[in-house]
Design a protein around this nucleic acid. Structure first.
Lengths: 339, 339
DNA sequence: CTGAAAGCGCTTACAG
DNA sequence: CTGAAAGCGCTTACAG
């Protein structure tokens, strides 16, 4: 019983198209049509095939089908992480949309490493995916591969940046401006902007600072933290704010979770939110409307990402041009109790 | 320019093994070996192939490779949802482990629907996946398909239940007992157990009630809520508890998020946690250690799931038997401030 | 509406 | 260490 003889046993696996065809006394091509376009096969033939299929427990082999048709019905999802993301709901919407379009999704978790993302690009290109949806930084080699492969790539990104192919998202700088105006109009005068690493946050931050300077004639305070901007960082940030000479009256956070953590910390220290300290989140996650106080945050219209992505794939499938297109899905500030 | 002529253009896609072989003046088989087992090809030949590969920007086609070798290097991940899960970190660990083993993961989000899970089983079986990791309810048809396909399936489940194939998890009833004892030993006398729909929660709940009855000689109160047990349900549950005639002194939650929401509600109503109301979570998520007060919760050892899953796959790959095996990964109650 | 044939791009014993 | 050949399980024009 060596490994060679063992490997021969594999043959006893599942029935093939040809097996089904034989049993239904038709050609394999007809069975193939039965699955891909049932309306073209005669009723009676279809019935025979159907019977054979269930009798044999046949399941079409998508690997073979993909190779023959060169339509893998596969899209790759490149994302940094699941645990700390504000956007899991957006991901759910996207995968649900893809499932409805009979697309399978290949999940690639990059952990935020551009290099790992680059390697994963090689892999998904090997699967000849129909598209890759990227929501994570990718190194130059990976980008180059994507570009030269000609695959459809949808980047969830800053809608003002130059996308590899198709970019979907809001304009980070617009949000920075809007947040400054919102805070200023709300009567706040000592904002504290919490930025994370990464280009998106940077763009937002710069715009915020600029607009704040213009409106208030003075600088806002900033603090840079490491991604992911999760609940865990709340204490440290609150301590930082507390230690500032100039008293902060509003803190602008890069995520709802972080905002929530800061609210909790502030309350634990006996501060009133928003009375003593106002807090603004990002993402409009479900918790933001359930907190005490409810959280003022930004809805980045993640529900628009899935339909736009699918529409883009559709256009491509029909062979039309759509290169270098941006789709600005916008955002809206949701004013609630916390600011 | 009709669709037919357009479809012909597809041929201009990427280079194939044969193209590379021609360019390197070797047979395709040699190029194949160069990728699968480089050590068997001569240094000089390898160098020529390598040059050809990079000159042509060749990427091996995994679809073709999978068909030829019948090893797709694909595992399906069937999970209910991403947004409300306590277990996203476990999922990350698992996918990281799979990636290290050069396995690709196919993501299937069932949304908690057993029927949808069943359909997805058909799909992943069509891809002839090496294994399916299931963390979601699957209807009988889907289970039947999995069983008859003979594919390796790892269920993250109650370790006392009868798994389809391999079951990994803790024993829900053990946890129910342990929670009752923990609450009783902590001096609490009026527990409120929040259960969600689903067999797991039910098993835990029954065990809790039984043990509590034995210890305290009286019944605990129970409340059933819909899954997912998220932050959103906090207010309603707190209101329910508040409305109970008998004053509750500890509430046992099916997730950390829910526990957190209840803490926030209680505090908003002027109650002290744990003084007026103690709260116990489930999952030991990162936020549990960062809250105010820090959350007493249950660590269900998700970090053991990934290694055990991978080990199981490994054993199977070597053709060994491991059917109907349970792996009890246990749990531990993490006592912090909230109870 | 159906069949026969070529082909998708690889892998893998089998020889040499 | 390498080549020649068969085969993986489908799809898809092309005829009929």
């Amino acid at each position: 019983v060596n490994s060679v003889s063992r490997s021969h046993k594999k043959k006893s696996s599942s029935a093939t198209l040809t097996d089904v065809a034989r049993r239904a006394s038709v050609h394999a091509a007809t069975v193939s049509r039965f699955f891909s376009n049932p309306s073209v096969v005669a009723k009676r033939t279809a019935a025979r095939i159907s019977a054979a299929v269930s009798a044999m427990g046949y399941t079409p082999n998508f690997v073979a089908g993909s190779l023959a048709s060169s339509r893998p019905r596969l899209v790759a999802l490149l994302i940094s992480d699941l645990a700390h993301s504000n956007f899991n709901e957006a991901i759910e919407t996207i995968t649900a949309g893809l499932a409805k379009a009979r697309m399978n999704v290949m999940l690639c978790l990059t952990g935020g490493s551009p290099e790992r993302a680059g390697q994963m690009v090689t892999t998904v290109l090997g699967w000849r995916v129909d598209a890759v949806i990227a929501w994570a930084p990718i190194d130059t080699r990976g980008c180059e591969l994507l570009r030269s492969s000609g695959v459809t790539v949808v980047e969830i990104c800053d809608a003002a940046a130059k996308p590899l192919d198709i970019g979907i998202g809001f304009v980070q700088a617009d949000l920075g401006h809007a947040l400054a105006r919102f805070a200023f109009d709300g009567g706040y005068r000592r904002p504290h902007f919490v930025a994370t690493t990464g280009r998106h946050s940077e763009l937002r931050c710069t715009a915020f600072m600029q607009e704040w300077k213009r409106l208030a004639k003075r600088h806002a305070s900033v603090q840079q933290i490491d991604t992911p901007a999760g609940f865990q960082q709340g204490r440290a940030i609150f301590a930082h704010i507390h230690a500032l000479k100039a008293r902060v009256d509003v803190v602008i956070c890069p995520s709802d979770h972080l905002a929530q953590a800061i609210v909790i910390e502030a309350q634990a220290q006996g501060l009133q939110v928003p009375g003593d300290l106002a807090v603004i989140g990002l993402g409009n996650s479900p918790l933001s409307s359930c907190m005490r106080p409810t959280l003022t945050t930004v809805d980045i219209h993640t529900d628009r990402i899935a339909p736009e992505t699918l529409a883009a794939l559709d256009v491509r499938k029909q062979g039309k041009r759509l290169r270098k297109k941006h789709i600005n899905t916008g955002f809206s500030i949701v004013a609630r109790e916390s600011a």
